[in-house]
Design a protein around this nucleic acid. Sequence first.
DNA 1: CGACAACCGGAGATACTCTCCGCTTAGCTC
DNA 2: GAGCTAAGCGGAGAGTATCTCCGGTTGTCG
Lengths: 188, 188
Amino acid sequence: MAVNDARPLRADARRNREKVMVAARAAFTEHGEKATLDDIARRAGVGPGTLYRHFADRETLLAEVYRHDIEGLAERGRALSEQYPPGEAFAEFLRMEFDYIKAKRGLGTAVKQMLGTGSSTLIECKGVMRDAIGDLLGRAQEAGAIRKEVEPDDVLRLVHGVVMATESAPDMADRLLGFVLDGLRPPA
Amino acid sequence: MAVNDARPLRADARRNREKVMVAARAAFTEHGEKATLDDIARRAGVGPGTLYRHFADRETLLAEVYRHDIEGLAERGRALSEQYPPGEAFAEFLRMEFDYIKAKRGLGTAVKQMLGTGSSTLIECKGVMRDAIGDLLGRAQEAGAIRKEVEPDDVLRLVHGVVMATESAPDMADRLLGFVLDGLRPPA
DNA sequence: CGACAACCGGAGATACTCTCCGCTTAGCTC
DNA sequence: GAGCTAAGCGGAGAGTATCTCCGGTTGTCG
């Protein structure tokens, strides 16, 4: 729906969709994940009806904003693997993912809750992240920096977990991420 | 409020408060953290007004239910330290905490979100857990099973994180918890 | 038992999500 | 550029959840 229709959106519709996305990103960043949709519509200068035609419900909107960000993250991840040695690149990527979710107060938690509902957009996001992590992880493993039995999903979840657990205490983030990374390294 | 008032509650009020707690625990376990409060009141056989006099809002109620459970957990934790050797007791406690939050679908996430709001009940919970963990952690550290620089707060947050991250995939829980525990052990 | 404070409960104020539909306008055709 | 058509707009409002207020009721104490 609204994602891949036969004919392209009319110009005004496309504009409005974009305005809503921008307003939504701002609102979610500012008020946490529970910004009201009517308010987002108002900020965007469109009626609630317009917002809801483009995004079926609050979760869809949230997921769409998230998807956009995730794709940017994965992109930067690919760049990392060319700038750093394998082990470093991996650790650096985790820190990056980290900073992102940290900047988005509560968004991570909200997204996590939605994963249970089976949103197709989020499943897509997960795939994108899994690929990005999988690549870096594979290299790190070949280089002997990370245990062989660790899988991309493990990393995905661990990072998410640490992020969520430190949303209210960002200072601890690096420290905890460090412990987790140690747990992924091969035994000396 | 309603926690430590000068005079004790009237008998009927006390009864109602208890009925609401029971209904709330059932509802939260059954419908996840978003069971409606009016529904809880109905189940408990009281009016919404009564519910809201005892528990200022949804978060307060959730926190109160949580507190009750946490105290039980901490109690069981103390028992563990007498049944197992230090390192084992510690690991076993984490698994226990784990199973509890897992059983409570989504409650962990909800509680976590509230930590940011500074609920006094939850701060108390955290204190209780920190003490329980601190004790087991201290013994494990003395026995050389866990690194010296690990602090109770680290453990608290890591476990919470893993729990939240595996709410939608409980099968991975043990595995991830294992990685985290490895990260807390002294380097070989 | 009588009086009074504590407590009850439900009607309803408020707020939010999401829908429906009459009006507007972009974009194609001639 | 004028007219036609369907895509799109936006706001009124239905549905629902949270939380409040207050007239009536009931426990408790002298």
